[in-house]
Each structure stands twice: as structure tokens, then as C-alpha cells.
Design a protein around this nucleic acid. Sequence first.
DNA 1: TTGACAAGCGGACTTGAGTCCGCTAATATC
DNA 2: GATATTAGCGGACTCAAGTCCGCTTGTCAA
Lengths: 216, 216
Amino acid sequence: MMPRIDLTTLDDSGAAERHVRADAAANRALILQTAERLFAEHGVAAVCMATIAEAAGVGKGTLYRRFASKGELCLALLDSQMSTFQAEALARFRQQTRAGQPYLRQLGDFLEALVFFTDKHAPLLAEVQHGGLLRTETPLNLPHFWQFMTVSALLRSAARNGELAPGLDIDYIGEALLSPLQIDIFRFQRDGRGYTLERIAAGLRGLVSLLGEHPT
Amino acid sequence: MMPRIDLTTLDDSGAAERHVRADAAANRALILQTAERLFAEHGVAAVCMATIAEAAGVGKGTLYRRFASKGELCLALLDSQMSTFQAEALARFRQQTRAGQPYLRQLGDFLEALVFFTDKHAPLLAEVQHGGLLRTETPLNLPHFWQFMTVSALLRSAARNGELAPGLDIDYIGEALLSPLQIDIFRFQRDGRGYTLERIAAGLRGLVSLLGEHPT
DNA sequence: TTGACAAGCGGACTTGAGTCCGCTAATATC
DNA sequence: GATATTAGCGGACTCAAGTCCGCTTGTCAA
């Protein structure tokens, strides 16, 4: 029911992984380490690509050969955390389904978890998303992609299970529920409006619960 | 009930409008005309500030003195259209309220109109929003500001009128309903997903109508 | 081992946003 | 009408993202 999305596989753009030259792999790891350190020291936004290259002792061209943009570099740094998050979410789904939890409840929980994930990784996510939600060919929208797949799968399960009000555009609703988690909007709500994470999560849960309420 | 938001006044940052030097005003108009022409010819994204300055026959410094960023320039170009849109929306609200239309219906209509407005002015809105939803001090988030004021006023009216399900976080819902109209998300839905404007509008209407449905 | 060649590499270069600061000139006062 | 004051002006400059291209080197096949 829930498609397992292997981020790593998708990231390597599918099939033919030829010979990865040792120096290339070493540079990749070196760059990631260096970037992580610099980001931790000065903040993601304040560190420019040239600085990373210099600190890693490689040329700018090399840096850009490994990572086509700052967004891709940040995505690579997020990769393992995303996989973990995804695995935990899937495990929770299985357990909750076994326990007979409604799918809408699972969706609410997932969105809440996503709120905290988004908050925790906001700076990296900002770079990833500014690189482009559009540009569907780059891996940059992978986070949104799997979030959407998850949400819409849950919605479809809920519909199949008779939990949903009739006549809803499930795909649209999936996108709409995720919209407030787009980083610019999320940050605006968090920093500009001062909403707490709890309030944001509760708001999303509220919307989800409306999906289950049938017309009187 | 509906706060009238005067964009122009807000734009001029309030009170003391000293002497506007004639050359400054002339340059402002000249720049706006020039930008409008270049944008029409080559597209907003493809025209850079230096080109606008050169085409207008002014220095880059002058351009930036009139408009602190490309976003502000684009906002200025949108100004009259936004005022018109706003005035029409208010007129429609008055008429609909007189005709006894529920406020939630008015909200649906407003969001639908906003979908078409967003589509029509997507390129300019993109520049405005990339300039910053955050940075609450700049006028750049004026569009979002008045959209939010309008939506939340309608929601409050609906609540006062007993049209709303109980226990909703009205402010949060206002933001959430507007989120899918943030330009990056809107474009992704329109261009990436291929949703028609009608589908987007219908999706938003669907969400709005859920707000009115009470638990069984 | 060697040699061909694709992959990898580095850094100069381009592009565009936005800043700075010394010169100029519109306005208000005398 | 002269002059001081202060906004306005222009374009050189900075900063960061991302591109280009000629040199280098790891890898495979002979």
C-alpha cells in the first residue's frame, strides 16, 4: 500500500552506476564533511560555495562537479536524515494500521512529525527548495515528492476505508496540506507570525480531521 | 467588518511625504514605463536591473534609489492592478452580503478570483515573493498581508454568523488556505502537476466548504 | 607495463543583484 | 537672483552562484 521510495537510488538517477573513481568519491565525502562543519559553524546561508571549495582544498569546478548547486549539496547532507525519518514514518504506519488506527489519524501524526522535521532542518531545506520545486528533472524536489506520495497514499487508504468525506480531490488536498510546510511559508508562520510548532501541527491536524467529517 | 487596506498609503510608508523632487518623480515614472516595456518584450525573469537602468537612461544607483530591489519594482508595477482587484472584491462582498450569501461562499469566490489573479500576474508575483515573505518591514509582503486580512475577516464573519465548525484556529486556517497560492507552489501545481486553474479553484472551494461541515 | 581516453580537476570567467560614495542640481531662503 | 542645503544621481565596486575549458590522472585493455 505504501510505496517505499528509495531516496538513494533515485538520487543516483537510476541504473548504470559505472566505476566511481576513488578520487571522486573521496572528494565527495571530503566536501560533505567540510560543508557540514562550515554550516555548523557559520550557518548554512552564510557559507558560500567558494568558501566550501577552498576549505575542502578543491577547486570550485570540482565542487560543482560533485553537486550541481548549493541545493543539491544541502540535499545530500539531508539524505540520511530523510531516510531515517521516512523509515520511522513507515514503521509507525505499519504499527498503527495493525493497531487499527484510522488512516486520517496516521496522516495527522505524519504531518505533525513533518512539522518538527521541517523546523529542525529549515536552513538546509531552504537551500534545497530555493533550488527549485519546479525543475522536475533535478533531484531537488525529492523531499516534496516523497512527502506527497506518502500523504496521498494515506488519503487514498483513508478513502478506501470509508473515512473520507465524498467528492474530495485527493491529489489536490495532498498538495494543499503540504503547502504550509514549504519552507518560506513555514518560516513566515514560525518567525513572522510567531506560531509555535505545536500550533502549526494542531492546525494541520484540524484540517485533516475536517476531511473526515461528513455533511449533516 | 472588512478593513479597507490602502496599498498606496502603506506603500508610501505612512505620514510625512515631503517635497517629491520633480526629477525623482519623473525618473520613477520613466523607470516603471521602461520596465513594463522590457518585461513585456522579454519576460520578467529575463530582464536584469542593469538593463532596465540602461534602457531608462539612468544609473543603476538611481534605479535602486527608486526601488530597493527588483521585487519592489515589480510590486510597484502590480500596484494599480492589486488596488483594482481589491476594490472589486470588496464591492462583491458588499453585494453578496446584501444578497444574503454565506460568508464561506464569499470566501470561496474570493479564493477563486485570487487563483486567476495569481495566474495572470505570476511572473511579477514571483519576483515580489522571492524578495521575501519574511522581512516583515519591507512592503514586499503587502500582497500576502491584505490577502490574509481579507481571508481572516471573512472567516471571522463566517464564525460570527455560525457558519463555521467549532474549534477551528481561524488565523492558522487563513494562512493555510493561502499557502497553495504562494507563487512557487502555485506554479508547481499549474506547470509541474498540470492542474488547471479550475481544478485549483475547485480544490480550494472544497477545502472551504469543509470548514462549514459539522461533525455528525 | 604501458598507453589511450574518459573522468576528474581547478580556477579564471560570466552574470546579475545589490552597495557605496563623490559629484550634481532642485528647492527654499535671503 | 544668489546661495546653501540636501536629495538625487551615476557608475564603479563587491559578492556569490554557476559555467567553461584546458590540463591531469585513474582505469581498463592490450
